[in-house]
């Protein structure tokens, strides 16, 4: 059983079309289309090792080096025509990114997104060892950053959420962001501790998620002036 956000019903203040969020979703889908069209498994694996971020690639500076921290954000695991990895990340990005982008503006939001992604990559590198050859792929680190920013900026906002018990229950709940994201953070933290102690068997990069989430703390550097003014004066964004 788990909770799945399917939308944020609350209105935006500045711009009704979230250009940057749409662009990011499209970019991820296009890269996935290339992955899907690449010969399987050789072509796909070559893409993962070239564009995915392995700590040793960054540390020893070969291949794409530091740039793999950025390219890996657009890669997702190939699971047929529909990838749950891609769909999950993009739904989370759409749900939480729309209002965060509204508070930042598209350009600053893009920079924030990559900053959170880089924070995620750095924590992943430090946690998994500088010479680990296993690459990590996915937008989830950056998306975690967007979720962290959402929690800081709109803790009381309601998220349209569905329960998933074997199959999705078609009656959405309107959970406050605080009650959705804090349990989510705890759910990331516990397996991350397991992984640090060498017990974790999951292929999920929990430290990447945590890195992105803590990277969200830099959101104050990317807010619109008006939005920051609202925030510091205690008026809702």
């Amino acid at each position: 059983m788990f909770l799945f956000p399917i939308g944020d019903p609350e209105g935006v203040r500045y711009r009704s079309i979230p250009i940057a969020t749409i662009a990011l979703v499209l970019a991820n889908v296009i890269v996935y289309a290339f992955e899907f069209l690449a010969p399987y498994p050789e072509g796909y694996e070559r893409m993962v090792y070239a564009l995915g971020m392995a700590p040793t690639v960054v540390h020893n500076q070969f291949g794409f080096g530091a740039l793999s921290g950025v390219t890996s954000m657009f890669m997702h695991s190939r699971e047929g025509l529909l990838s749950l990895h891609l769909i999950g990340n993009m739904v989370y990005l759409w749900t939480f990114g729309r209002r965060v982008e509204d508070a930042c503006g598209p350009v600053r939001y893009m920079v924030f997104y990559f900053t959170a992604g880089l924070c995620s990559a750095l924590l992943f590198i430090l946690a998994s060892g500088l010479d680990s050859p296993i690459p990590v792929i996915g937008a989830s680190g950056a998306v975690s950053g967007v979720m962290g920013a959402y929690l800081i900026l709109f803790p009381g906002a309601r998220i349209r959420t569905i329960f998933w018990v074997v199959v999705p229950i078609p009656y959405p709940l309107y959970l406050r962001a605080f009650w959705f994201l804090i349990p989510w953070l705890v759910y990331q933290l516990l397996p991350a501790i397991d992984q640090l102690q060498g017990y974790g068997l999951s292929s999920v990069a929990y430290f990447g998620h945590l890195g992105g989430f803590f990277g969200a703390l830099s959101i104050f550097l990317f807010l619109r002036r008006d939005a920051l003014y609202r925030y510091v004066t205690g008026v809702d964004l």
Binding site: F112, T115, L118, L122, F220
Partner: peptide, 25 residues
Amino acid sequence: PFILREAAGWVVFVFLLAVMDSGVR
């Protein structure tokens, strides 16, 4: 402070890239 803050966001981003570029050393 409002104007400097916006510059600071870009600097942090470039700074993180530089840390990655140095091979996290």
